[in-house]
Computed example of a mutant assay.
Amino acid sequence: MAHASPIDAPSSTPKRFGVLLLPGFSLLSHACLVEPLLLANQLSGQSRYQVVSLGLEKGSVRSAAALSAEVEFGLGDGAEAFDCVFIAAPSPLPYPLGAALVGWLRTLPSKTALGGLAGGSEVLARCGLLDGYRATLPWQRFAALSQAYPAVTFTQTLFEIDRDRLSAAGGTAALDMTLTLIRRELGAELAQRVSEQFAYERVRTADEPQHVPLRSRLGHAPQSLVDAVALMEANIEEPFSTLELAEHLGVSRRQLERLFKKYLQAVPSRYYLDLRLQAGRSRLRESDQPIGEIALAVGFSSGAHFSTAYRNHFGLTPREERLT
């Protein structure tokens, strides 16, 4: 969930972003952060954002794609103050953090917001700079880092904006985050124009989850549970009853309920309802399809039934969802 950040507050002076590139960083994540900011300058006719590239030392930094990027400053080169410093790093981090980097990050002025792209969140966590904050990171690292850094509330969302800490899970999630920042500061119209320039059809919101493969989501759960969830996901429009699911899988209803409670902390019917409502939410956000048609497409007998379940789950009606 995105919370207010000083970075997205309107300002009469350009916002200065420092982007620290660590070896093995993702070119895609880097571009998804930097290019929308520069395009916003171009389309607005104003220099609203300044982007400065940083490295452990001045020179070139090799990316994960084995291509090198030139950086303007090293950590000791006395670059001017920044409104925000983003760390772009690989995930998982394949090397220890040097004392110079840790010291530099910890001595940045308190008014400087900090952000992580992909493994950049791990860098901030290792430095103790995410304690007490919400942050996201690539889903593959969620379990390990949640255990290693219990003072950080890690999520598996696309991005997080929590006060003066920002994080994106990697890849195009950085584009969604950056477009959200532009919309908050410069308005929805300009953010939409930037999005259109990238042929980006829909800006995803901070509360949308990363797509985690089913087997990875369920970890070491029994195959019968994996099969049950797969059946649910494949049958959204005409949902099975719990008894029908159990019969398809060749297990008893009680056994199926025990598996869901043990591994997913939910009864099958509730888990299925959540899946259908999430599918409905995606359709509401991504299409102009009538709400009644969406209701039928995600297994509800009427628009009224869908609206009631939707409000109970998300705290707003389908109609209100489309207005946000």
Score class of each variant (00 low, 15 high):
Asp8Pro: 08
Ser12Leu: 12
Lys15Glu: 03
Lys15Asp: 02
Arg16Ala: 08
Ser26Thr: 11
Leu27Glu: 12
His30Pro: 05
Val34Leu: 08
Leu37Arg: 01
Leu38Pro: 00
Gln42Trp: 12
Arg48Ile: 07
Ser53Trp: 04
Leu56Trp: 08
Glu57Val: 08
Ala64Glu: 14
Ala65Met: 15
Ala65Gly: 14
Glu70Ala: 15
Gly78Leu: 09
Ala89Arg: 02
Ala89His: 06
Pro90Val: 04
Pro92Ile: 01
Ala100Arg: 12
Arg106Gly: 10
Lys111Trp: 09
Thr112Asn: 06
Gly115Met: 03
Gly119His: 00
Leu124Ala: 06
Leu130Gly: 00
Gly132Met: 08
Tyr133His: 13
Ala135Pro: 01
Leu137Lys: 02
Trp139Cys: 01
Arg141Trp: 02
Ala143Thr: 14
Gln147Thr: 15
Gln147Leu: 14
Pro150Trp: 10
Ala151Arg: 14
Val152Asp: 02
Thr153Trp: 04
Asp164Glu: 12
Arg165Asp: 02
Gly171Met: 09
Asp176Trp: 06
Met177Ser: 06
Met177Gly: 03
Ile182Arg: 05
Leu190Cys: 07
Ala191Met: 06
Ala191Asp: 01
Arg202Leu: 13
Ser216Pro: 02
Ser216Trp: 10
Gly219Tyr: 08
Pro222Met: 08
Ser224Gln: 13
Val229Gly: 01
Val229Cys: 03
Glu233Leu: 15
Glu244Trp: 09
Ala246Phe: 07
Leu249Gly: 08
Val251Pro: 00
Ser252Phe: 03
Gln255Met: 09
Gln255Val: 10
Glu257Gln: 14
Arg258Asn: 13
Phe260Ala: 04
Tyr263Ile: 05
Gln265Tyr: 13
Arg270Phe: 00
Asp274His: 12
Arg276Thr: 08
Gln278Ile: 01
Arg281Cys: 01
Ser282Lys: 13
Glu286Cys: 11
Pro290Val: 11
Glu293Tyr: 08
Glu293Pro: 03
Leu296Gly: 10
Gly303Ala: 07
Phe306Thr: 05
Ser307Gln: 08
Ala309Val: 03
Tyr310Phe: 15
Asn312His: 13
Arg319Gly: 15
Glu320Ala: 15
Glu321Thr: 11
Thr324Val: 14
Thr324Gly: 10
